[in-house]
Design a protein around this nucleic acid. Structure first.
Length: 546
RNA sequence: GGCCUUAUGGUCAAGCGGUUAAGACGACGCCCUCUCACGGCGUAAACCCGGGUUCGAGUCCCGGUAAGGUCACCA
């Protein structure tokens, strides 16, 4: 067989340019020594997975920390998975979490196009080179034939796939190929693998460390029958031409690493460094599995927006999973920007971590407690405008009032910040009792109506909104005493049975009456914010409900 | 099934031949306190199982076992 002739038939010269042309068009990048060129290469499915963010953060950090480039390439080689507007979703959802690309799809850049479908010519040129060198060949096998082979292999416990004796088209004669071509039989281009599965090589993975790679022996498809490359081939060509020097990707790719190694070798490309990060998992019954797009709402990036998790909280949580020494750093420097943390690939975990929403919640509380009241206002308002009820949206129209409420609830001005807020959704709902239109108390008094009435009326009689906090509390104590409750905690603890309760029980009655809740921030401040009139009318309402 | 990877408290994890085996989240208890939240203090809780190597093994080696990933003209 004359490979040159075959190559010219399969890929005519007028369709492609010489390889030198592409090499010159996409030269080595002029970057400082040690600079990493990394990328995110998602399929445009319109769905952004938590794992996308996870791996994006790692790639972005490494690139930018090293003075390199982080770019976006769209792997749209599978038409079936393509969804309109998906690239916009990729940009907007990552941007929400503070991840931005230096170049790539829908951005400028000298290494484009960044959509693989638009790079067909380039792939064809390199495929032609492979054919010419006898390292690739056309395969006319039908789906049915392939399926039959697979069945045979499975039945006989043989390695499944297209290799060795099962690679029917591998040694087709020139006449056969020409005849098939003349008959317009559809065909794919396969790699003529030179590998041997008996041979293993040590390999250094940036996150896994020393691993073993078994040689590939599969004649994998590199160009599908529509002339579009498979992922493997596109990966090799693109990452070479785009001058990627570090590929951090999910560990589901580890299994196809042998294919990629052979492809890079066959094409004469220098292999980039690889780092295979583990996936985020979840407990399903008593087994763990990858976070699933279909089963787990928290797998989707939109989940965090809808729930009102602060982007910084999600990012911070991702960092705790990504780098084991991050939490220690965060504890030491609570106020430093995330990007000052020295991210290292070596500190990435080797085994998959379970997604822990409780931990996320804790991180979120800390992040939110670090916001100023105006930042909190903007954050909550933005969430409410997108996802809140009409009433909740309206709560943000009186900025001054909301700011006062937020200061109280965040403990601003106090010695210690409060950490009540986990998410915007929860915070907005928690704030509802400050607004008459959403104040819907379900009074749960723990004392008899008579006692409650007496306490509430006693308080109303003495309440003066001009009192400061301590004067106010003295009056609460007085009301307690008038009703037989202990006002001195020590006395109460010494002899609890002598009283129906103590000041805190009295305060609880007031709290329930005014807010409908038994747990709230400082009651005096709440009454100050509500004002005398509303405070008293709420207490009246509570009395009326008895 | 083949190949690859992983294995320390419930979870995330330090550890890299000698430690009372860190820390964080969660749980529980105490303190502070008008409740809650915050904060402080404390308790319970772990090296998958066997064999080696070694004076000494969570750490190194070999076997199991278990879990995960992957075996497409999907990425």
């Amino acid at each position: 067989m004359d490979w040159n002739k075959l190559a010219d038939i399969l890929v005519p010269d007028e369709n492609v340019k010489p390889l030198d042309y592409y090499e010159a068009l996409y030269p080595e990048r002029d970057l400082p020594k040690g600079a990493r060129v990394t990328r995110l290469a998602p399929s445009p499915t319109g769905f952004m997975h938590l794992g996308n963010l996870y791996v994006a953060i790692a790639n972005e950090r490494i690139a930018h920390q090293s003075g390199g480039v982080f770019y976006l390439r769209i792997e749209d080689t599978d038409d079936k998975r393509k969804v309109e507007g998906a690239v916009e979703v990729i940009h907007s959802s990552l941007k929400y979490f503070g991840i931005a690309f230096d170049e790539g799809a829908e951005l400028s850049g000298n290494y484009g196009p960044y959509y693989q479908r638009q790079r067909a010519e380039i792939y064809h040129a390199y495929a032609k080179d492979l054919i010419r060198r006898g390292l690739a060949y056309p395969c006319f096998c039908t789906e049915e034939e392939l399926e039959k082979t697979r069945e045979y292999q499975t039945e006989n416990k043989l390695l499944p796939g297209y290799y060795g004796e099962f690679a029917h088209c591998r040694n087709l004669s020139e006449e056969e190929i020409l005849a098939n071509l003349a008959a317009k039989k559809p065909y794919v281009i396969r790699l003529r693998s030179q590998g041997n599965v008996e041979v293993k090589h040590p390999f250094r993975d940036a996150v896994k460390g020393e691993i073993t790679v078994t040689e590939n022996n599969q004649d994998v498809v590199i160009l599908k029958s529509d002339g579009i490359p498979t992922y493997h081939f596109a990966h090799a060509v693109d990452d070479h031409l785009m001058r990627t020097n570090l590929v951090i990707r999910g560990e589901e790719w580890l299994a196809s690493l042998p294919i990629h190694i052979e492809l890079f070798k066959a094409l004469g490309f220098r292999l980039p460094e690889y780092g295979h990060n583990c996936s985020i998992q979840k407990m399903d019954g008593d087994t763990r599995r990858k976070l699933s797009k279909r089963k787990d709402p928290e797998a989707s990036l939109t989940f965090y927006r809808e729930e009102g998790y602060h982007p910084l909280a999600v990012r911070t949580y991702m960092m705790t999973l990504l780098n084991s020494n991050f939490e220690e750093w965060r504890l030491k420097f609570p106020d430093k920007p995330l990007d000052e943390f020295k991210f290292s690939i070596g500190k990435m975990g080797k085994s998959g971590a379970l997604f822990d929403i409780l931990k996320l919640n804790d991180v979120s509380k800390t992040v939110l407690s670090g916001l100023s009241e105006t930042e909190m206002f903007d954050f909550l308002k933005d969430w409410a405008e997108h996802y809140g009820s009409d009433a909740e949206k309206k709560h943000f129209s009186d900025r001054e009032y909301m700011l006062k409420v937020l200061s109280l609830c965040m403990g601003i001005g106090g010695k210690k910040r409060r950490k009540d807020f986990v998410s915007a959704k929860q915070a907005v709902s928690m704030l509802s009792y400050f607004f008459d239109d959403t104040f819907a108390p379900e009074y749960a008094f723990r004392y008899s109506p008579e006692v409650v009435r007496s306490v509430l009326e006693g308080f109303e009689a003495s309440y003066d909104s001009a009192d400061d906090s301590s004067a106010w509390f003295s009056k609460v104590k007085a009301v307690a005493e008038e009703n037989g409750f202990a006002s001195d905690m020590k006395a109460y603890k010494a002899n609890p049975d002598a009283y129906p309760g103590n000041v805190s029980d009295v305060a609880e009655m007031l709290r329930v009456a005014v807010t409908g809740l038994s747990n709230t921030p400082d009651l005096w401040t709440i009454m100050q914010i509500l004002g005398k009139e509303r405070t008293l009318s709420r207490i009246d309402g509570a009395i009326a409900s008895l």
